[in-house]
Structure formats: structure tokens, C-alpha cells
Design a protein around this nucleic acid. Structure first.
Lengths: 218, 218, 218, 218
DNA sequence: CATGAATGAGCGTTCATTCAT
DNA sequence: TATGAATGAACGCTCATTCAT
């Protein structure tokens, strides 16, 4: 399994490019992420032509292919961007925090806020992963699990120090993750009913109520 | 609201067909649902050609178009089939039950079991809804909410009779729904970790723990 | 040339049919003419499917093919019907008339009235003849010239007896024919400007003015 | 009326193209007009596949669609070409002429010569207009009437200055137009009987004889 | 570094015609 | 005499990708 994981390359690093100037490359790819995020979410990956993309970024088709190797790379770029935002948002939220519950709440908030801000990318992840190569799909799963592991560790730590009840931390983690994704997946439903802050508050209350060792037990 | 609901047509009833024999029509459409479910889940809607479908059901392309009006109708057929299975499974599970908690647990079990059996269709619902017409998408949302309402009512009833705590029944309902869908959406993850029965048991415990009025209150 | 003409069969007589009852055959074919005239004029021959036709006459596709051999036969039926109406209308108009100018005026009136009543078929003749076989096209030309010859003879007779000036009767005939067809071909223009009776009157006046030997010459 | 006219777009200007080089665009479209004129006249619009067209111009199907938006645009291109030829031929013929009869004769000659040279396009106009959009058909009628108006004005002017008799200039104009079209519509008949020059001479004599104020009236 | 014309395979859909019943 | 399900070839159109300039 370790071997298998190692065997799977990093699709982002593997994206072909004929551009030498790394600043330009990064800058253009950022533009591409922005533009394709909207395009793919509105019309879907298949219905978005490379010419659409070229038109929106103000380049020509040929030029696009100097920054990427294949159309699917645009998807990889979007997904990697989302994963990075998860990580950096959580990292920022956790900075300087040590209390398990505080850390869990912060991580969730950081995570959910990215979902709110980058909901389009979350939807794209669910809808368009089929267009990745097998390797790409494996990479995405690994990437997702890496993020999830942050939550798992916080919970495991909390249990270890006796602040949390001995819950199934794998399942709890996925529940946190999925109820976050739900904000994006069912945004058409929640939109009229609450803000992301209310959602975070309500779900946290619900999720954490019995994760914490009841005070009454003391 | 009634008017609005009426305005949105029923995409299933609207599917054109040039077959007069209703038995044959129903039978072939069932075959189509089976075949396209696998095809769409494996390759995606766009990557599945009508010729692929025709080949799998043992007909020619032209024949397919005597049973449907457009490729997208195949999607509608799948989705309607899923919705019907939800409803019938829940109905069966609720039959003869009156205790709120019992009803809630049964409904959940019925629902989750369909998700397990029809996971492919759940995935298709998430990934391929983009290919429905606007009306089709509205219909699907309505259909989904109809099912959800069953849960909402059970919870509302439970609260009313004082068996459940006064929770936000809309949110709780969606949490139940989404954690069900999670089984299909993240099946690649859960598959190696538990069975659907364990999943139902664990999630039920988790979900219902504080829905029940605490004993202490007595 | 005689040989060639003889070689060309009569497409109407050649239409295949699997119906023994001649009354039924004739009756159904009349229905087909009526229905296809409207269909072909509104949508064009190509855009009209045999299923459209079947639907309109209240038969099934298979049944249609018991009255005709191929879709193009429907065109032949329409065109033959038009040609017969020309002939019978002119014949009726000429009955009992002997004065050349009277005969010419009557023939024209008879012809133009058919064009007015059967304008759709005239348009179909112009637009859809391409779909006839080579033989069918030759047949139609012959059929058309047969009708024209009636006019030619009237004019030739008039010239011979000294009532008409020695005009080019072939050209004058085609002018009469074409200005008649113009009523159908440009109906969208004339419709708002005059009735068929006014058209007949104005065009007759114009056409015949100097066909008649000027009285002053005597 | 001005508003209404404006409301109807110009189908030629509206033809989509993905070619930036205007010289290339014009050149290729000219080729397309030439090639499709023959193809559409020989086989009809429907029976001519875009692949046929592509093969004849030495391009691939995909390439064709960079010069036009839809197959029907090929028709618009042909028709616009014909209309321009009418106008430019008449304009050239009228240059420097002021006598009404001279102008009328020149306009007719210019018009009829185009019909002779571009008879295929005239036939296509009659046969294939059905394939235009509603807007396209309106545009064609307007375009046709614009040309006709040149004749109407010449006749109206001639009447005003007392050189022509007070004829119905609208009807006379359409007679001139239709007897011109007749050369193309019945070319199979005239071909063996006269040249276009003879046709022009004979028809002019016939048409203009009593348009001119009779000398006897003086 | 960028352009943009061209390729060419593939897809959704239609429909004249046949034939078992 | 009629039905109607099935065939299968064809068509209009799109688009990821390449490459000469």
C-alpha cells in the first residue's frame, strides 16, 4: 500500500508546460483556476470547450496549451487549489490553539468557511472527478484523506487526554466533513434558511454535544 | 405555491415514446434503467454514447429512440426509479409503526438501505443532474424534498408529543439525509471499514442520542 | 424523340400498391393527396416523415406502404392531381366556345383559377420536383407541355383565321403560363394587393392587348 | 415600418465565423458560394451533406464550420450573392442613362443577364428558401423588393414625365421580374429555342410595346 | 511566447422501409 | 387489410489537440 501510494505521482507536478518563466506560469494558472471554476460549475466540464476557456482568460487556444498539457489538467489545478485552501485555512485557524475542543471547533470553522467561499470547487470535485485519470483520482482521495487526518488527530488527542468521549474518530471525522460538504451540495436549500455562520454554529453544537465528556460525569 | 408546483411538469410523464404496447414500454425502460445506471456510473453521462446503451440492451440506436425522446430522458428514468425506491422502502419500513423513535429509526433504515443497494444512482444524481433541463432539475429537487418531508414530519410529531427534544427538525432531517448519501459518496472509504448495517447502527446511535428526551428530565 | 417519350413510363400507373379494391385505393390516395399537399407545402418534402403522413390520414406507416411504393410516389400523386385539375378546368371553360379570343380568355381563366385554388401544389411542383426520379421529371415536363399546347393551339388558330397578330405563340403561351404561376409563387406579395379575379382581369388586358388584330388596321 | 425593417436582422452579417483574417474569410466564403451553388442545384439542399461541401472545397467538415455557423448559412451566402449581382448589374447598366425607356430597357437587360449567368442561384432561391429561418425569409423578400423598386421607380418616373402610359407600375414590375425568372425556371424549355439575347429582345418588345405613349396620341 | 487555422473522429438524432404478427 | 416494432445508415455539428507561422 505504501508502495502503491508512492507509485501514484503528483498530477499537479506532472502537468506539462512549455513556459520557462515560473512567475508567469503561476500567474496564468491562477487565472485559469478562476475562470474554469466558474465555467465548469456553470456548464460542466464536458460542455466547456477549451475555446471557452481561452476566450475568458484572454488567450488563444494554442496559448492555453503552453500552460497545461491536457484539458483535464485544468481540473487538477482547481482541485489542488481547493485542497490547499483547506489546509491553509485550517492551519491558520489552529495556530496557537492547544485545547482539543477549541482546536476542533477552529478546524471545523476554517474548513467550513472554505466550503462556503469555494463551494463551486467543492461541487466540481463531486461532479467532475470522473474526468481525472485513475492516478488523478487516487491522488485526490489521498489529498482528501490528508486533510481529514487533521480532524482525526485532534479528536484522537482529545480522547487521549480525556476531554472527549471515546467515539469512533474516523466516523466522526467523516461526519464533520460531509456535513460541511452538505453546505455546498445543498446550498440551494440552505441559502434561504441560514448563513454559513449560523450553519457552523448549529452544526457544531449538534456535532460536539456528546463528543465532549459530560461535565456531570465528574 | 400549489400553482408553482403544478407549473413544473413531470419529466417522466413527458418522456416521448413511439411504443403503443405499455407492457413492452415499461419492460424496456426497466432494462434501460439497469443498463444506463451501470454505464453512467462507470463512464459518466457524456462519455456514454447512445450506441453504448443500445449495444448493452441488445437494440439498435433507432430502437432506443422509440422508448425515449432524448438521451437525457435516460437520466430522468434512473432518477425517478431511485426516488420511487426511497418512497416505497420507507413506506414499507413505516408500515404499522407508531412510536416516533421507532418510526424515525425505521425510516432511516429504509432510506439507508436503498442508498446501499442503489448507490450508483445516488452518485449519478449528484454528478449528472447538470444534464437535466431546468424543469428537470426543479422536479428532482421537489422529489427529494418530498422524501425528506417524511422525516421532518416524524421528527415534528415526536417533538409535539414530547418524545423528542425541540430540535431544528429541518436541519436534523438534512443531516440524516446527507449522512445517508455519504455512504454512497464515500463508499470507497467506508467499504473497507464497515457494512451498511454497522453504518446504520453507528449513525443512528450518533444521530438520535440527544433527539430523545433525556431521562434526567423525568 | 417519339421513342424517348414512349420509353418514359407513366409514374402514376407505375406506383406499386398491394390493395385489390380499386375504390378503396382511389379513395385513400385522394386522402393522401390532400394531407401531403399541406404537409409538403408547410414543411417541405424532406422534413415530412412518412409517420407524419400516416398520423394525418389516420393510418399506420405500414398501411401507407400498401397504397404507395415509395415516399416519392406521394409527390407524383399530388402533381398528377394538379395536372388533371388544369386539364379539366380548361376543358370545362372551353366547352362550347369557338371564338379564338373568347377561348383564350376562358382557358386562361380556367387555368388561373386552378392556380389560385391549388397554389400549394403549384409551389410543390416548383420546389420538390428534385425528388422525382429522372423519369418522373420527364413525365412532369411532358404533362406540363401537354397543357401548354392547348394555349398554343388556340393562339395558332387565332392567328390562322386572322383574329390574332402573328405573334410567337410559343413565347406568348409561356408568358401566360408563367404569369399564372406568378400568382402562386408570389402570393405573399399579391395577397394584400388584389383578388384572383382582379389579377385575371388585369393580366388578361395586358396580355391580350396586342394579340388582337387592332381594329384600326381594317 | 422603419422600425420593423430594422427589427429584422441581416442574416449575412449574423453568420458566425471563427476566422479572424477577413481576406481569408471572404475568399473561402466565395469558394463556398461557388461550390454549394452547383451542389444545391444538382442535388438539392437536403441531399447535399456538409461533407460533400467540405470535399468539394478541399477542407474538412470541421473547417467549414469555422466559416459558417450552420448549414443554412450556405444558402444565405448564395442568395446574398445573387441579390448583390442583381443590384450591381442594374446599377452598371443604368450608369449615365436618363431617358426612362432607355433606363427601363437597360435595367431589364442587366437583370435578365444576371438571371442567365446565375440561373442556378435563381432556382435555389425558389426551391430552397424553405430552409431559411423565418427572419431569413423575411430578409430575402425585403431584398427582392428592394431590387424590384428600382424598376418601379423608373416606370413611375416615366409616367410622371409623360413618356409612359399610366400603367399599374407594381404589376408591370412584377411581370418584368417574373418573365425574367421564367428564363431560369423554364430554362430546360427555352434552352433549345433561343439565346438569352433573343429572349431579352422578344420579351422587351412585348413588355414595352404599350408602356410607351403611342405616337398616334400626338 | 503567442496565434489561430485545420484536423478528424465521434456523437445525438432522424427516418424510409421492412416484416412478423 | 392493417399494425407497429425494428433496422441501420446517414447527417449536422462539436471540439481537443496540433503545428506552421
Amino acid at each position: 500500500m505504501t508502495e502503491k501510494s508512492k507509485a501514484v505521482g503528483n498530477p499537479v507536478a506532472d502537468i506539462k508546460s512549455r513556459i520557462d518563466n515560473p512567475t508567469l506560469l503561476a500567474q496564468r494558472r491562477d487565472q485559469l483556476v478562476q475562470v474554469t471554476t466558474h465555467l465548469f460549475e456553470n456548464q460542466g466540464f464536458d460542455a466547456t470547450s477549451v475555446e471557452d476557456v481561452a476566450g475568458q482568460v484572454g488567450l488563444t487556444v494554442g496559448a492555453i496549451y503552453r500552460y497545461i498539457g491536457r484539458k483535464e489538467d485544468l481540473l487538477v489545478l482547481i482541485l489542488e487549489d481547493l485542497m490547499e485552501r483547506y489546509e491553509s485555512s485550517i492551519a491558520k485557524a489552529l495556530a496557537g490553539k492547544s485545547d482539543p475542543l477549541d482546536r476542533l471547533q477552529s478546524a471545523l470553522t476554517g474548513y467550513y468557511r472554505v466550503i462556503d467561499a469555494e463551494g463551486r470547487k467543492v461541487l466540481i470535485a463531486y461532479r467532475e472527478s470522473k474526468h481525472l485519470t485513475d492516478d488523478g483520482r487516487e491522488w485526490l482521495k489521498r489529498r482528501e484523506l490528508e486533510t481529514n487526518r487533521i480532524f482525526e488527530r485532534i479528536i484522537a488527542d482529545g480522547i487521549e487526554v480525556g476531554v472527549f468521549q471515546p467515539v469512533d474518530h474516523t466516523l466522526v471525522t467523516y461526519n464533520i466533513i460531509m456535513l460541511g460538504h452538505a453546505w455546498a451540495l445543498k446550498y440551494w436549500f440552505f441559502r434561504d434558511r441560514m448563513t454559513i455562520d449560523e450553519y457552523i454554529e448549529k452544526q457544531s453544537e449538534w456535532l460536539f454535544r456528546d463528543v465532549i465528556r459530560p461535565q456531570a460525569a465528574h
